[in-house]
Amino acid sequence: METINYQNFRIEAENICVDYNGKVALYDANLRLQPGQICGLVGMNGAGKTTFFNALTGFVNISKGKIRINGESVRSAQKDQTIAYVPQNEGIDSQFPISVWDVVMMGRYGSMNIFRSPRESDVQAVKNAIERVDLTDHLSTPIGNLSGGQRKRTFLARAIAQRASILLLDEPFSGVDIRTEKLISELFIQFKNEGKTILLSTHDMIHVREFCDLVLLINKTVVAYGETSEVFTPENITTTFGGISPDFLFGPES
């Protein structure tokens, strides 16, 4: 009999359900991702994308099912800073009085002492991360003075500084400039080569075809999951978006 070595999977979600005060947000959802895989999470607003992320990070508790991160529980994944979450631009308070440097430093908090006083290695990690997203000129800029793309890169830098092996990105391409989009796609290739696993939600079908090895279509539960070339069909997309044809949603394909 074939035995599955769970260590091989970065993310292993089995029949997970999440409900908020009895209201079901996600049910019987499954997902398995290996190192170096990039998976797109596609669904309507309210289809459970954010809930899926929240379950994986442990921000909400699952009512049923099982989640393993690198073969371990969500709690020990938190302790090891295995997962980094890059929020949607709308998901953060852009007027918060905090600089680029301070935000990226927050990526190191999990491994610091109780006072969160940075060591030399933390400072170095933050510096490198900011360099990789090309924001070295904006170290002390308050995030309120950044463009949408720069803000997105700040949070990417935080994920890099965290040295997480799994990245969850909520709408990484929404509201960013072309330069940022190019930089993010270059980073994706680097992350992939480093063996990091990426799960990203997006509305943009072109990005799915361009970046994602795998795609997970959800509408409260998994509609389809597999290789992008096989699963990302007009029929599946139509089902995911509640019967609305993809032509109508994204324009006719050539």
Partner: peptide, 12 residues
């Protein structure tokens, strides 16, 4: 105050 989700994600 800024980002409770990140706090939770890194085990705080």
């Amino acid at each position: 105050c800024f980002d409770p989700r990140h706090a939770k994600t890194v085990g705080i």
